[in-house]
């Protein structure tokens, strides 16, 4: 049994070797002749080669977003790795910077007092700030606006918000969300914060994103790009996200691309009359890609057992997802 498996693997390795050679710009006549006789020698050869062809074709006809997902994970354009030895130093720098800022505020500042905004479960909310900046606040979200003379600062404590900023170079507009800081460079952008996980997507113009846990600096995002901070890895990942997908939540669509189910549930719960709970923390690790219509959360929950090994139990005021019984 084991022998047979080993030879199957060998066949696959040979087939893969031929497959890559045949994709050179101009494989030699000799290579092609040897390949052709290899194909004829054993039917398993031809079968394995056809399967590789099918795999290659299937990777190429997949949707743009799925292919982008693979590119983002395995061939990312920009990543920051958390470097632990530096983390403390950076934190210290940050504390100093903040002290400096507070100091300046107390000495010269006479800005607007801090304003707190929050929205209820299932209720989006529109906010207009004194400078004309618009914030669309997602359901069950909260933020604090502090407008100083030299700087406009937003602290997103939880949830999601879409900012359409009136740009003012002399008075930067900065959003802090967990470990990420987003600075407006003439912009509309969306920020979603789920616990310490933060996602920033730009729909117009550009923003500058920096991370308090990454030692080396900052990056600029432009319209159509998204940066995601994953607290488990301490990495910021940059990917593409079409503008209308980033703000799809404003039209009752929550969009997720390869996110842990626990994060998806946390966001769905911002819109759910009956909170969804995960009975088994392992379920939270399952990765989900797809769209949840917030006007039909029940329908989405009903479809989950088709995709994931879980079962749904509905109670009067909440829903429990647990591992499917075998």
């Amino acid at each position: 049994m084991e022998n047979k498996a080993a030879t199957e693997q060998e066949v696959a390795r040979e087939a893969a070797d031929w497959w890559t050679r045949l994709r050179e710009t101009a494989p030699s006549a000799e290579t092609l002749a040897r390949w052709e006789s290899w194909m004829a020698r054993d039917e398993r050869h031809a079968r394995a080669f056809d399967q590789l062809n099918a795999l290659g074709e299937w990777l190429c006809v997949a949707s743009t977003s799925q292919r982008q997902e693979l590119l983002d994970e395995f061939a990312p354009r920009v990543t920051w790795a958390r470097r632990r030895p530096y983390a403390l130093a950076v934190a210290a720098t940050l504390v100093l910077a903040m002290l400096g800022w507070w100091g300046a505020r107390f000495v010269g500042g006479r800005g607007m007092p801090a304003q707190h905004y929050a929205s209820a479960v299932g209720q989006d909310r529109d906010i207009r700030l004194p400078d004309g900046t618009d914030i669309a606040l997602g359901a069950d979200s909260s933020l604090t606006a502090r407008y100083g003379r030299g700087r406009r600062r937003i602290d997103l404590a939880a949830g999601e918000a879409y900012f359409t900023v009136v740009h003012d170079r002399s008075r930067p507009f900065v959003v802090d969300a967990g470990s990420l800081r987003i600075e407006d460079l003439g912009t509309a952008f969306n920020v979603r914060r789920t616990g310490q996980r933060v996602s920033v997507a730009v729909t117009q113009g550009r923003v500058r994103v920096s991370s308090s846990t990454a030692a080396d600096g900052q990056l600029e995002l432009e319209a159509g790009q998204r940066a995601e901070y994953d607290p488990r890895s301490g990495m910021v990942r940059v990917s593409h996200l079409a503008a209308q997908r980033a703000t799809a939540w404003r039209h009752h669509q929550l969009e997720f691309v390869d996110e842990p189910l626990s994060m998806v549930i946390a966001n769905v719960n911002r819109y759910s009359r009956h909170p969804v709970q995960l009975a088994d923390p392992q379920l939270g690790q399952l990765m989900f890609t797809g769209t949840v219509n917030t006007t039909n959360i029940d329908g989405w929950i009903g479809a989950l057992p088709h995709v994931f090994p879980l079962q749904v139990s509905r109670f009067a005021d909440h829903v429990v997802l647990s591992s499917a019984a075998h």
Binding site: M1, A5, E8, A12, A15, A16, Q51, L55
Partner: peptide, 21 residues
């Protein structure tokens, strides 16, 4: 590069097509 691509392809084949033993 060819070596890496071929190695990855064989590994994907194994995860997608290899007969269950």
């Amino acid at each position: 590069v060819r070596y890496h691509v071929s190695h990855a392809l064989a590994h994907c084949w194994e995860r997608c097509f290899a007969p269950e033993v």
